[in-house]
């Protein structure tokens, strides 16, 4: 276990930029090494925050689905929403959390489309869940944004 993994990956990126890149045989290899170093910087950020990002997504999506569920009661989508809210991740590995988030996200996408269709049809109730979903999408994007020199 390397609790300072993000810093460790960062050191590897620094090593590439300061030691290996100047020795690159040609421009093509130098460009590749520069991009690999940049990528390591992104990996380091995901190493540190990955679990938090995915758990936050799952919690936010479940809250939206629970709130919106009464509007879809009795429909196939309503049943999928209920099943999703009751579902737990199969484990805490990033791969398991990612798979769980993907499943929750697919339900959310369908709920968002249904909410938009209701709004277009003039149903006033649709405004609140639409705003809630966009609040989530804003947070979802912000949580995943990378700090990069590129």
């Amino acid at each position: 276990m390397i609790p300072q993994g993000a810093q460790g990956v960062g050191h590897l990126a620094t090593r590439i930029v300061t030691d290996l890149l100047p020795k690159a045989a040609d421009d093509y290899m130098a460009a590749d090494l520069g991009m690999i170093a940049g990528l390591l910087g992104l990996v380091a950020q995901d190493f540190e925050r990955g679990t938090e990002v995915l758990l936050a997504d799952i919690a936010d999506i479940h809250a939206i689905l629970e709130t919106a569920a009464p509007r879809f009661a009795g429909s196939d989508l309503g049943r999928r929403m209920a099943a999703e809210v009751a579902r737990l991740p199969s484990g805490m590995r990033l791969s398991q959390l990612t798979a769980h988030t993907d499943g929750a996200m697919r339900v959310l996408i369908d709920v968002h489309a249904a909410v938009e269709a209701a709004a277009d049809a003039g149903e006033g109730w649709a405004k609140m869940p639409d705003l809630a979903i966009w609040t989530f999408l804003d947070a979802h994007v912000a949580r995943r944004s990378y700090d990069s020199a590129f």
């Binding site: 590749d32 690999i36 992104l42 705003l131 804003d138 944004s145 990378y146 590129f150």
Partner: peptide, 28 residues
């Protein structure tokens, strides 16, 4: 295995999503 493909996949997707959220979110 070209790193430009991975860089595009990770960093550019992130930024393009920020742009779309900026364009479309009612909170933006």
């Amino acid at each position: 295995k070209a790193p430009i493909l991975a860089l595009a996949g990770w960093l550019m997707t992130d930024r393009q999503q920020q742009i779309l959220a900026d364009y479309l979110s009612p909170h933006s």
